[in-house]
Design a protein around this nucleic acid. Structure first.
Length: 496
RNA sequence: GGUCGCGUGGCCGAGUGGCUUAGGCAGUGGUCUGCAAAACCAUCUACGGCGGUUCGAAUCCGCCCGCGACCUCCA
């Protein structure tokens, strides 16, 4: 069952066969959050997407070093103030307190979505020396110039000499030359509007600043990713990821810095996730078209009719491809919740299935194997989670048929059953990281024990055709949001 | 204004030259069941508009309409 992994490379705008630089090893860098406020639901989608990619690469037996940074300096607002500084002053905190507070919140949210921590999570403020060194290299190579203590990257010279600027984002230098935006014009220290700061001289009241050969100041935002990816993954690594909106200028400038410093295109494959929309429009705090992860979980928002569990939200995200925009609506979430329950129920029931394999029919085994193979093929096709899920749902139908006794299980071989069980376990646990959060499970089996007792007593009533008692139990349980289902193999229950 | 992308059935969402029943949810009919729920089986609704290329296009090309992203901080 040999497959070839293909990924869509933003650099070439094509799907390409994935070949690691060093067989068996993968270096992957993903741009992480700026920790100046609570994590945005859109961020969650991006990091969930890359978590799936990370997990799947590991399932393919690659040894992956996954680096995801935390930006805690250098990210400027429109008014020129550093995001971290502004957050600190408004809350009367040290900048590092702000960074720590929102880093903690970010990690907590990533845990709630059951994503794995990266191998290395470097902070920009912890890598000032590396960034200063890189600025010096860029200056030495002739692509940086100093002006009044700040250092800028010379995009025009770089573009003319290397022809590399604009490749990733599809921008061409002629467009840059005709750039006429007013707010770029006023930045008169630059030789050209498309030039960008790699070191900024700090004003006297600036809170976060360091010594450098040029001034007391701080690094430009784009620089940290270049410096930290180089430090932990080398000058040339396999995968660089991030949100679509970072393509320009952040990633374009990152490429320019790496090439400018050491003449090397940093990453072979650039992967970009698409945006999460709500009701067909971009989420935006200013016009109220936004919802926080917490509001989504609790249902405390005008945009949803009820709360949705984190795993339902994650499942909802997996039902679309990471390169497509995804429209978050209440109807879509309701649908996702039902589908997710169905998937989890089958996953649970699958673990209980046993087979005697008394018949010699191969058809059911072949059919199951076909869907299993297809699911992996879909993941190999640029991590197509919606398609892989559709294969799993085909298997859900088969599993439900077995459980209900409506499909003949006698032809199911032990080998196929084990393959089916391990496939579900690999996809649900290892790749998707979906856990059943629709049932309460933190009471050491007390609920399970009580439910077994209640079902047993009700069963006695049913055997005596005491429907009144039987229905009363079921109705009362329903009021407690526990649904009883009478099947061929006895009564089962689920939390509503 | 410039760059890029998208427009699929009631909703979300895959798919790219002919054969994918994509899938999930909702709907309809049936099976099962003391009833119910669930499940299973069957089934309906589709590729924004107009032209072109082709034996054949939802899929390629052109134009139009609509939507979005980026160009300024953004995942």
């Amino acid at each position: 069952m040999e497959h070839t992994l293909q990924v869509h490379n933003s650099l070439t705008r094509k799907k390409e066969i994935f070949k690691p630089i060093t067989e068996g090893f993968i270096g992957m860098y993903v741009c992480g959050p700026t920790v100046y406020s609570d994590v945005h639901l859109g961020n969650c989608r991006t990091f969930v997407s890359f978590d799936i990619i990370y997990r799947y690469l590991k399932v393919l037996k690659y040894n992956v070093r996954y680096v995801r940074n935390i930006t805690d300096v250098g990210h400027l607002l429109d008014d020129g103030e550093d995001r971290m500084t502004k957050g600190a002053r408004m809350a009367n905190l040290e900048p590092m307190e702000v960074a720590q507070k929102y880093s903690n919140g970010f990690h907590k949210m990533m845990d709630i979505f059951n994503t794995e921590r990266p191998s290395i999570e470097p902070r920009a403020t912890g890598h000032i020396l590396e960034q200063i060194e890189m600025v010096q290299q860029i200056i030495d190579n002739g692509y940086g110039y100093e002006k009044n203590g700040s250092v800028y990257f010379d995009t025009i010279k770089f573009a003319e000499e290397t022809g590399e600027y604009g490749k990733l984002s599809g921008r061409i230098i002629d467009d840059l030359l005709t750039e006429t935006r007013d707010n770029l014009k006023k930045q008169s220290e630059k030789k050209h509007p498309s030039d960008f700061a790699i070191w900024m001289k700090a004003a006297d009241d600036h809170l976060m600043k360091w010594n450098s050969p040029w001034s007391v100041g701080f690094p430009g935002w784009h620089l940290e990713c270049s410096a930290m990816s180089t430090k932990y993954l080398g000058t040339h690594f396999d995968i660089h990821g991030g949100g679509n909106d970072l393509k320009f200028p952040h990633h374009e400038n990152e490429v320019a810095q790496n090439i400018g410093a050491c003449s090397c295109q940093p990453s072979n494959y650039w992967l970009h996730t698409n945006m999460l929309l709500m009701n067909g429009r971009k989420m935006s705090k200013s016009d109220g078209n936004t919802i926080s992860p917490e509001e989504l979980f609790t249902g405390d928002s005008v945009h949803v009719s009820k709360g949705y569990s984190p795993m339902v939200v994650k499942f909802f995200m997996l039902q679309s491809h990471y390169r497509s925009t995804l429209d978050l609506t209440d109807d879509a979430l309701l649908a996702a919740e039902k589908g997710y329950k169905r998937l989890m129920e089958a996953h649970k029931n699958l673990k209980k299935i046993t087979t005697e394999n008394t018949s010699n029919s191969d058809s059911v085994n072949e059919e199951i194997q076909k869907y299993i193979t297809a699911a992996y093929a879909d993941m190999n096709d640029d991590f197509n989670t919606p398609r892989a899920l559709s294969q799993l749902f085909a298997l859900v139908s088969i599993i439900n048929g077995f459980v209900d006794g409506k499909r003949d299980i006698s032809g199911l071989s032990q080998e196929t059953l084990e393959s089916l069980q391990s496939t579900f376990s690999i996809f649900m646990d290892d790749i998707f990281g979906l856990k059943n959060d629709l049932e309460s499970g933190d009471n050491n089996g007390l609920v399970e024990g009580l439910m077994d007792l209640i079902i047993d007593i009700r069963q006695k009533a049913r055997e005596n055709k005491d429907w009144g008692t039987s229905d009363q139990v079921r109705d009362k349980m329903k009021e407690l949001n526990i649904v009883l289902k009478d099947g061929a193999e006895g009564t089962s229950w689920t939390m509503k």
